[in-house]
């Protein structure tokens, strides 16, 4: 068969000797390229912090470090591979009438072993770092089963205390989170008050009991880097530690139907004193129905003043609470 017509190349050995290819000048050249790539990757790793919201919880500090590390590793791989491809595309093009073939190299065992081994080591590394990070966050409460408790420390390394880890003595009841189509309601059991805005004292481990009245929802505060699906019929224990005062956005993160996008509210992290003051202040307020976009629009649609398009389930009535946040409240 004339499958490769006109290719009478000087026969080259099938697999070239790695040693011969890698003479000293090449090694030096490669090393400096790798060093350049390394420098860029480290820089990207630092840049990565800027792409994220403020670090408002101790978990955020851990997650960002992990992300920065993975960004650096990823950049290194990406530049390495794409750089090589670009070099080929620019410098190794066939001349217009050159119909000859390239060298018939079919493989190189040494190279193949290297590029199997390096990713193995990389993922062991990334995996270990991720494991430790997750372990330190320990955001899931009791649905993390006992199994996890037994392997809770990485062998040989004691678990570092998380800022705000509470001593067993001061153990306030967890805040009850009620999610609905489409509203959030937070109940402070010890004080018997409720709010559509979440208030938390800074530097203290916050504990929650997550519940849903209808469908799946997700508890998500980007500034805290924590998220947990809420499952109807289950109570999920959840915990994290806010470390920075301010106002942040809390979003529904598990698609929950028509008004999913609007199912947001704010979190206020404040000093211990302000937090206590807020709790006692709102205890004076008579409970009243909160502002609720879904419920209002649905009622309007029922009266025929607006149309909602295709069919939608009826929203739950606006929660009746001691403190309501308004949609216009600013946040970071």
């Amino acid at each position: 068969m004339n499958t490769n017509d006109g290719t009478s190349q000087t026969p080259e050995p099938r697999t070239r000797n790695l040693g011969r290819v890698l003479n000293r000048r090449r090694i030096l050249g490669l090393a400096s390229l790798a060093a350049g790539n390394f420098a860029i990757s480290v820089w990207m790793g630092q840049e990565a912090y800027k792409w994220l919201p403020p670090q408002a919880s101790s978990e955020a500090v851990l997650v960002d470090k992990l992300f920065s590390f993975m960004t650096a590793v990823g950049t290194f791989i990406f530049i390495g591979v794409v750089g090589t491809l670009l070099y080929s595309m620019i410098f190794q093009r066939a001349a217009k009438y050159d119909n000859s073939d390239g060298p018939p190299i079919e493989g190189n065992v040494k190279l193949e072993v290297i590029w199997t081994a390096v990713p193995i080591m990389l993922i062991i590394w990334i995996g270990t770092v991720s494991y430790k990070t997750y372990d330190q966050m320990s955001i899931l409460g009791s649905i993390a089963p006992k199994v996890m408790a037994t392997v809770d420390t990485v062998p040989g390394e004691p678990r570092e205390p998380v800022p705000g880890d509470i001593s067993p003595s001061d153990n306030p009841a967890p805040i009850e989170v009620h999610s609905r189509q489409w509203s959030w309601e937070f109940r402070y059991i010890d004080q018997n008050v409720s709010s559509t805005e979440l208030h938390l004292p800074v530097n203290q481990r916050a504990r929650f009991k997550l519940t849903s009245d209808d469908v799946l929802h997700g508890f998500y505060v980007p500034a805290f880097r924590v998220k947990q699906d809420i499952i109807p019929g289950k109570e999920i224990d959840f915990a994290f530690t806010p470390i920075r005062e301010g106002r942040y956005r809390l979003r529904d993160s598990e698609y929950s139907g028509t008004y999913f996008a609007a199912n947001q509210t704010n979190v206020v992290v404040e000093s211990q004193e302000e937090y206590q003051r807020w709790l006692s202040e709102i205890a004076q307020n008579p409970p009243q129905a909160a502002q609720n976009l879904a419920y209002e629009e649905y009622s309007q649609a029922e009266q025929g003043t607006i149309s909602l398009g295709w069919a939608t389930v009826k929203p739950a009535p606006a929660p009746v609470v001691n403190h309501t946040s308004s949609e216009e409240d600013s946040y970071e």
Partner: peptide
């Protein structure tokens, strides 16, 4: 090239503690 980029973000997603932030 785009696959490589997506693979790298995929590995980031596979890291559970990071995925918890960016999931959904």
């Amino acid at each position: 090239t785009t696959f490589l980029f997506a693979g790298i973000t995929g590995i980031m997603l596979s890291s559970a503690p990071f995925d918890i932030h960016v999931n959904n």
